[in-house]
Design a protein around this nucleic acid. Structure first.
Lengths: 253, 253
DNA sequence: TCAGTTTCGTTAACACTGTTCACGGTAAAC
DNA sequence: GTTTACCGTGAACAGTGTTAACGAAACTGA
């Protein structure tokens, strides 16, 4: 019986490598302060612009490709940082993850805008599909789930949820490792959505600069927002310890 | 002694009218689903593109101009809607204002992105200046202030604030009608910043579509976020009444 | 009223975008 | 070894923001 991994021909490997080079070059471009453009990427690779159309259907698809990979790479960083705490301490890992997420958003606003502030039209199911498998989404959902396993904070019963929301938590479109969450515990997803909304909110506000720069610098707005969520996540008992961790990470900036 | 109003020459009136036409045409363009472009605006006015440079220094300035005016116009709508409640009922007006803000953001995502998700570089003091006089900012700050006058909810003392934040609330860069707030009550601005951050967060999340469409449709995420802020704003006693108002406005969509 | 100046628009041009098309050469497949 | 599929090219089109040199009309002051 053949292995899971399909026998990769030489051409397929070549093609894969080209994709990697595309996102690498795009990342360099963004880091250099330029904005993403098909032609610039092509030129930096020693190609002409039309050649890129062998790899992406259009500009938007290029954007989505690098957005996905940037998200993946950034999440790997946060996850690695979070691992300075053991796997049986998800609360600490979550605190580190949130702070790292913010630090990343502040230090790379262009990248953040690409991944998280990139408008997705209501009808565009393909692009929404991509959102579903967003790496950062899985990372945070999974941590919230682990926190719940340990601290058993309360969440709404399915019957208490708005019917439309109930549908959404039972068959989630948003990024979530929800398969291993039993049906009757899916109300948990509501807590995830709400806390993610809060986190996303402050970080976007700060990263896009729609805020007093001194307030951003102080980190107090972010800090207060995160601390407000300790209660709902059953982490009141860990308040002191987690606050310290959070402050450590914020100071790292 | 000359009047405050400088004697407007014929030329100045002409120029003013041209500015008005620019934003009007730009608004039409956005409403039609196109995106804002110097050349398109010029063409729609019967001008060539370079002519617009007599009115704006560059593209970004055009964007800022129409963003400012869109914000102004939208705020006027929300304010008018809020006036279905009397001036001595700021809580109801605030509820209406928040809901209208969201409805606007959802029905005109392109405009919302222009005004509220438009990245502002940290060093750009000119563009941040514009933010300071944002009409919507004044609208919401003033309502929070009026709510406080009536309900006297608690806010942090200046001494309890982080030094950097204290500076920021004493000499605010963010949009705020703060002149009439006495120095010792400036801690109130912190409540404003935090509540605005929460409101901005959900609305941006929903408007940019980084969220399950069904959750947006239900309005529950927004609703829950607003309701969470009734307590801190001293409005627990008004919970039932305000929830009803909020639901009415949300159903209007 | 006439000269001088300011303001507002033009055309032409440059350097960029994304995108399509018709055409080769080269590598894999049968 | 022939065929086929893939990957790249150059040319071209329709856009974009932006600068420069220039002209006409409108205001200004003597």
């Amino acid at each position: 019986m053949p292995h899971i991994r399909v026998p990769v021909t030489r051409r397929e490997r070549q093609r894969e490598a080209t994709y990697d080079e595309i996102v690498a070059v795009a990342a360099e471009l963004l880091d250099a302060g330029a904005d993403l453009s098909l032609r610039a990427v092509a030129a930096k690779m020693g190609l002409t612009a039309p050649a890129l159309y062998r790899y992406v259907a259009n500009y938007q698809e290029l954007v989505d490709l690098v957005a996905f990979e940037l998200d993946k790479a950034a999440t790997a960083e946060w996850a690695a940082a979070a691992e300075r705490f053991p796997a049986d301490d998800p609360a600490a890992r979550l605190a580190v993850g949130c702070a790292r997420f913010r630090n990343w958003a502040l230090s790379k606003p262009r990248q953040f805008a690409l991944v998280f502030a990139n408008p997705i039209a209501a009808g565009d199911t393909d692009r929404r599909e991509l959102l579903t498998i967003s790496t950062s989404g899985h990372f945070f959902t999974d941590l919230v789930w682990q926190v719940w396993e340990l601290y058993q904070f309360p969440f709404p019963a399915l019957d208490d949820l708005d019917p439309v929301v109930r549908e959404a938590v039972l068959d989630p479109l948003i990024p979530a490792k929800s398969e291993h969450i039993p049906r009757e515990d899916r109300g948990l997803m509501w807590i995830y959505m709400r806390s993610w909304s809060a986190l996303y909110g402050v970080v976007t506000l700060e990263s896009t600069g729609h805020c007093d720069p001194r307030v951003i610098e102080s980190g107090q707005l972010f800090r207060a927002t995160v601390l407000d969520w300790l209660g709902p996540l059953g982490l009141d008992g860990e308040r002191e310890r987690l606050t310290k961790i959070l402050d450590e990470e914020l100071a790292r900036r």
